[in-house]
Structures are given as C-alpha cells and as structure tokens.
Design a protein around this nucleic acid. Structure first.
Length: 547
RNA sequence: GCGCCAGUAGCUCAGUUGGAUAGAGCAUCGGCCUUCUAAGCCGACGGCCGGGGGUUCGAAUCCUCCCUGGCGCACCA
C-alpha cells in the first residue's frame, strides 16, 4: 500500500514535469516474480504513443529523474519497458511502526467514503430450517458486511422475510394436516406440502397452545398455523444464524409491504411513468423496454399480486431509505431473475444502484460421497447440523475460500480434518504459534522491543523483508475485497501470510536469538498476530491463542 | 431453441480486471524434530489455461465461432 502510494506520487510528478498525462491504464503492482523487485510499473509502455518515444527510452528518463529518492534502493528497466523498483529496508521497517500505531484499525480505509450500502442476504423463506446452501450465503454476506465497513462504507445488513404469498399458506396447511394426523384422523396426503420432522413438532406445539384448533373453521385454523409456524421457524433461523456468528440489523417483512399499500403505490408510480399497463385482465411491467426478455405480470388476473411485485416495492423502499448502493445476495439458480430486477431498478430511476451477487450450489459430501439432501431424519442437511459437527470457524473459512459463483464441494470429513486440505487450521495455527511465543517470552522475561531505528535495524534477514512486504499489502487486499465484493481475497491473503509466518518461525528462531534480536522479532510477531486476527475477524473466524 | 455461469497440474482451486518464464495446496517421491506447537519447514515431479480464429508491443484475461458440464427461461416463490 505505502510502496504503491509513494511511487504513484513520485511518478506523477516526473510525468507532469515532462508534460505527460498519467495514462489511464498504467498500473503499479507487486510483480509475480520477486526478482523483479518490490514494485513494477508499466507506465513507460503506456506512454509510448503519447510521448512519441520508445518505451525503454521513456523508462530511462523516468529512472534518471528518480535517482535521488532515498527510499528507493534500485531501479531497473526490464523486458519491453517495465520499471522495477526495489525499496530500501528502512522503508519496509516503517511498516512495523504503522501497524503498531494502528492496532486493530490497521487495514481501515476511506475507499467507501461513507457511502451508504445495504447488504441483503440469506432471506430464506420461513418455511423450514436453514440448510447448508443458506450457510454459504450467510457466511458471504456477513463477511462482506465486515469488509465493506472496514473499507469505509456505512453498511446495514438486512434479512427479507418472505412471509406473504402461497408458500406461507402451504406451510400453514402442512402444519394443520400433521396436527390432524397426530389427532388420529386418517387423511389423504395433500399434493404439495412440507414433510420434514420439524413440521410434526410444530403441529404438536400448536395443538398444545390452541386446544380447540381442530374444531375451528379450516381457513381460520390454517391462518393460525401459518402464523404460529412462521414465528417458530423464524426464531429457529435467528438462533442458527446467531450460532454461526452472522449479523442482520434489520428483519424486513414482505407482508408489511402488502398491508401498508406499498405495492399499490408502486403500481401507481409505474403507470404514471408509462412502465406499467393493464392487459388480459392482469397488470404488467414493461420490462422489455429495459433489457428483459418479456414483460412481467405484477397482478394476476385473479387479483393476487406476484412475488416480483412486492420485490419491486421492496427495492423502492430500500432506495427511499437512502442507500446509495443495494447489494442482494441470491442463490445462483435465481440468475434469470436479474434482468427484470435490474429493469425494475431502472424504472425506479436507480439505474446502477443494485448489485447482485450470486452464490452457487454447495455439494455436501462425506468422504467423497454425496450426502442426500432429503428431508428424512438423520441426514446432515441443516446448517445447524453441519455447524454442530464441524464448527463455525471451519465452515465459514471453507465457504469463504472460494469465489462465490463457482460450485463448492463441502466434504464434512475434510472440513473436520486438521490438514492442509483444510486451510483454516493452517491460518489459526500461525496465530496460536505466536500466542505461544508470547507466553514463553513472558515467562523468560523477554519483552517486545519498542519501535525505534535501532530495534528495526535488527530485522535484517530476507525473511524479515518478506514478512514486512506482505504485511504492507494487507490494506490493499481489504480494499480489493471490498471493491470487487470478494471476501475470498482475504482468505487467500491469510493463507499467504500464515505460510510466511511458518517459514519465518522455522528459519528465524525468536526466543533463542540474542536478547535484542529476540525482542525485535517479538515486536514483529506482535504485528503478524495482529494482522492475522484482523483478517480472520473479517471472515468471522476466531483467532485462537492455543490449539 | 434462447440466456447466464463454469472449463487452468492426477485432485481442489488462485490468478490483484491486458503484463514479464501461468501460481498455491493436496496427492506422489526425497530430506528436516536432544532448541520457541512437525496442525510445521525445505526440495523434486507435474501444464495445448476446453478447441479454432481475431484484436495489439503483449491474451488464461477482451471479441467471435464451436465443444462439454451446471442452472435458468410462469398470470411460482
């Protein structure tokens, strides 16, 4: 981060002095290969056309102009015109002071600049317990919230409760049916109903709570079961999410939109702007005008409004609450829904205000064999079962180690296993090793050095340099993760940092070194442990003191 | 049929939005514990980046046409 900023400022000055503009596509980045130095810049190649000179000749000019920079040890021109910079050790040493001063706020940035963002995720129908796929969305959403907050966004996390419509009626009907079975009535199976064991439990409870249930009018009894069941299931969902370390600030009811007349308001707005019309006894949204394949029905000919209708009203409501950016996290099987939702946002005059992240399927395996995702008892299918078996840390890390829109194999045995197939332990172990060092150091009376030119000068091995350069990159990763909404970048960084720590640990003994070196290394270890904990925190994973 | 996503080492996946000789881990093989946690470290092996064509100084990345797999194409939610 600092290296990039330093070069950016210096290079821009050189370009300005030469009367050149900074090329749009010029980048400053750490090269893949360490032999190319600490930072590599392609600006000379990008300038060729503008300056009407050969890239290497431009590079020569830039190199000459930067000769007096004391923070830079070496500049080289390589390949077609890359400028490769190597910074002085003293430059990297400053990283220790920066991290020490920043403490837990290291990695915080102003990228978001206070932009108000809403992240809506999980939002599973309250018709049954959360399953493993919801867990992936939950981990992703929660981590994204943490990362974007770290990057300077003002973030609110929301759960949209689909408590209106047909699924709810089916839930109520299913509970009532089970209640009748429990009461000894012999009935044919309804066509479309929820069969899980949890339905039977709820049925028993609702009968206990409402003795006269089976004597009531059918519609009334169904409604009662619906409300009762929804409340119980939603309570369960909240408990499961809490156990998984997932935060939602707002629980938003779909039903409230309907009863408050928000859906009708939306229709009126659409009609006014010419985006809605009546035809064939139904009310339609003219989404084809905004890139969708076909127009969509908002109110059916039987008078019911569609799910999409409340969803438009819901997004209208989101924007009216003042969010600059709305992020929806959906299952990948809903991707066909994106064009119409985008069209809706455009019709609401909020083009670009919505960003959809798709979360792909989770294949639950045990020892390589698929675990049936049926509703039968005894199968590991719910999020709660999985978290109970393998732990929240391991599950979350697994979910966050992959790009969200590729399919994920989740092998219960692998995730429990303490090996490199399961990198969460590799990263946590790095933190625990440092924690253990601190304990041992305290016993031996060794204290971490305070930051000074003298103590920093003792961090002089190649391993020290590697570590410092990587620590300097942490803020870049936080920004990249926030910008591209990709929590897995943090996971990647942490695995790299853990590997660097393990390498350091093997090659640079801390406590057995000479007293002042031991203190200096302990000072560095404090920084490393802090950044590991910091990064794990963004994933919602704990940083244990011992393992 | 149309659309979206994916295809990178034997396996699981990265690849900082167009950069240099494409990277990790696992697996396989070979080294390292009388010293801070071996849940670790070091080394070797391993590639037509699904295929063809194009864009340019430069392509795993962008455009185009195919192949393969997944998922969508309701007056369902």
């Amino acid at each position: 981060m600092r290296a990039k900023i330093h070069l950016e400022i210096a290079l821009k000055k050189v370009l300005t002095d030469n009367g050149w503009d900074w090329p749009e596509k010029a980048v400053i980045e750490p090269p893949k290969d360490k032999k190319f130095g600490d930072m590599s810049v392609n600006v000379a190649m990008m300038l060729a056309k503008q300056a009407k000179k050969a890239p290497r000749a431009i590079a020569e000019d830039i190199m000459a102009a930067m000769e007096n920079d004391v923070l830079i040890d070496k500049v080289e021109i390589a390949g077609p015109g890359f400028l490769n910079f190597t910074f002085a050790p003293s430059f990297w040493h400053e990283t220790v002071g920066i991290i020490t001063d920043a403490g837990e706020s290291y990695g915080t940035s102003t990228l978001g600049n206070g932009t108000k963002v809403q992240v809506e995720y999980v939002s599973a129908n309250p018709t049954g317990p959360l399953h493993i796929g919801h867990g992936r969305g939950a981990a992703l959403g929660d981590s994204l919230v943490r990362i974007m907050e770290k990057a300077g966004y003002e973030v609110e996390a929301e759960y949209y409760i689909n408590d209106a419509g047909r699924q709810m009626l089916i839930l109520g009907g299913s509970i009532l049916y089970r209640a009748k079975l429990e009461a000894g009535q012999d009935l044919p199976e309804p066509e479309n109903f929820y069969k899980g064991a949890y339905i039977a439990d709820i049925a028993k409870d609702v009968m206990k709570a409402t003795p006269g249930l089976l004597e009531m009018d059918e519609a009334e009894a169904t409604e009662l079961c619906t409300v009762y069941g929804k409340d119980v299931i939603l309570e369960g969902i909240k408990e499961d999410l809490a156990a998984f370390g997932v935060r939602h600030d707002v629980w938003f009811s779909e039903k409230s939109l309907v009863t408050d007349g928000k859906v009708d308001e939306t229709f009126a707005d659409l009609t006014k702007s010419g985006m809605g019309y009546e035809a064939d006894g139904a009310y339609w949204f003219k989404s084809t005008e905004l890139g969708d394949d076909k127009d969509r029905v908002l109110r059916k000919s039987n008078g019911d409004t569609t799910y999409f209708a409340s969803d438009i009203a819901y997004h209208d409501n989101k924007f009216k609450r003042g969010f600059d950016l709305v992020v929806d996290i959906w299952g990948a099987d809903h991707h066909g829904y994106i064009p119409r939702m985008m069209a809706a946002c455009e019709a609401l005059d909020k083009k670009g205000g919505l960003h959809v992240i798709l979360v792909n399927l989770v294949n639950l395996l045990r020892d390589g064999e698929p675990v049936a995702m049926s509703t039968r008892a005894g199968q590991f299918e719910t999020l709660k079962d999985v978290v109970d078996e393998v732990g929240a840390d391991a599950s979350r890390f697994m979910f966050l180690s992959r790009k969200s829109d590729s399919k994920l194999d989740f092998d219960l045995e692998l995730v429990k296993q303490k090996s490199m197939d399961n990198p969460v332990y590799y990263v946590q172990y790095a933190h625990a090793r440092i924690a253990s060092l601190k304990v041992k150091a305290a016993d031996a009376g060794t204290k971490a050095a305070t930051v000074s030119a003298d103590s920093l000068a003792l961090l002089d091995t190649e391993y020290d340099m590697q570590m410092l350069k990587l620590l300097d990159q942490y803020p870049d990763f936080v920004e990249a993760a926030a910008r591209t909404q990709s929590p897995h970048l943090i996971s990647m960084f942490l695995q790299d940092l853990a590997a660097t720590l393990h390498r350091y640990y093997s090659n640079c003994h801390v406590l057995s070194a000479e007293a002042d070196v031991a203190s200096a290394r302990l000072m560095l270890m404090n920084c490393v442990a802090g950044v590991i904990k910091n990064g794990l925190g963004l994933l919602g994973v704990s940083a244990p003191e011992s393992m």
